[in-house]
Computed example of a mutant assay.
Amino acid sequence: MNISNLKAFIETVQASSISKAADNLHLTQPAVSMQLQNLETSLGHQLLNRSNRGVQLTEYGKVFFSYAQSFLTLWDNLQQDLKAVAASEYPSLQVGTCPAIGQYALPCALFLFKQIYPQIRVSVQSLSSQEVISELRNRTLHTGFLEGIPHAPDLESHLVLRSELILVASSSHPKTAVDLADLPGLPLVLTPPDCDIRRSLERSLARYQMDSASLKPFLELDGLESVKSAVISGHGLSFLPYIAIKKELFSGDLQRVFINGATFEITFSMVWRKNESLSEDNQQLINFIRNDSGKSFC
């Protein structure tokens, strides 16, 4: 049975007029008349008596009207239940994050967010900062977290976290401090050049008028955990964000090697699309992170 025809019939009966029903349905009167005729043809019975004074139900129409109302209520309930199933299967928020903040700081904040808003489903993807920007523009993400502060006219951003970028070595390493001039001679284990942490390191070196090309990595590994494992095993030194190595520094698996007269930093921002009406769930997440000022990060 055609649902549109059914709605036209119910609206006509309630309005006692085809023209009024057409106005309420934002249709033309001939269109509503055609829907009523199609409904009567499909049932094989006349449902309405039409006159200049309006419409009246026939005996067949009276029987059908009660069923039609129940059927339409069931149809509306079905649509709502199907939407509820879809909402339960698909997260209401898609979040993309670069690994450093996503693995070591953001989980605690999202845990607290879920305690306040348990009905909001959140799915988190680990991406590079450039991929976060790309997926936001492709509209596959609602919100992103990335290294640095993006200078993009189509995106809004908010600085959420600053972390020291620390030179670390294994617990057995003999030195606890070096000079900037010593860095090119160290056996460094670094992430690849296109990695967020590597780019932050290069910017930090530039602030001290040091060319990052002077560093000759002993080993390049993709992934913070791989780098940490190599350094803990004594295979070199590395620059890593403090948020990623707090546990290892506390346990003594890693030790900090100070750089005389220099400190390096890595920053992280939350980003979302600019000049766009945000969903209520996305606005709740953005407000939570902004108002929290980083206190809930791990």
Rank of each mutant, 00 (worst) to 15 (best):
D196V: 09
K83Q: 14
P107E: 13
K20P: 00
A230I: 11
H235Y: 09
Q37Y: 04
I18P: 05
T267P: 05
L43I: 11
D292G: 07
A8I: 08
S129H: 09
C108R: 14
L74Q: 05
A15H: 01
A21Y: 05
S212F: 09
L136H: 06
R121M: 10
L240F: 05
Y117K: 14
V189C: 07
E265P: 01
L201H: 00
S4P: 02
V168P: 00
A100Q: 04
F9I: 02
D179E: 04
A169Y: 05
H142N: 14
L78K: 04
I232H: 10
H26Y: 15
V178G: 05
E11A: 10
L47D: 06
S157P: 04
P118G: 10
D76Y: 11
A181W: 08
I120H: 11
L161K: 14
F288G: 13
S200F: 00
P150L: 00
S214R: 15
T143Y: 08
L141S: 05
K274E: 06
Y208I: 11
Q209H: 15
L278V: 05
T58H: 04
K274T: 04
V95K: 12
R53A: 02
V13N: 01
F71W: 10
P193Q: 09
S226W: 10
S123F: 14
R290E: 15
T73Q: 12
L224H: 09
Y208Q: 13
A84C: 03
L155E: 04
F264Y: 05
L48D: 02
A84I: 10
Y117Q: 15
P30A: 10
N38R: 15
I10Q: 06
H235T: 08
E11C: 15
N49L: 14
Q35L: 12
D196Y: 04
R199Q: 15
S128K: 09
N275V: 00
P118H: 10
H235I: 05
L57R: 01
S51F: 11
H26A: 14
S170Y: 03
I286A: 04
Q284I: 01
L188H: 12
V95N: 02
T263W: 01
V32T: 06
M270T: 07
L110M: 04
F218T: 09
S128N: 04
S88W: 10
L224Y: 08
I133S: 11
Q29F: 08
N77E: 13
N291C: 10
E40M: 13
P91W: 12
S172R: 11
P241Q: 04
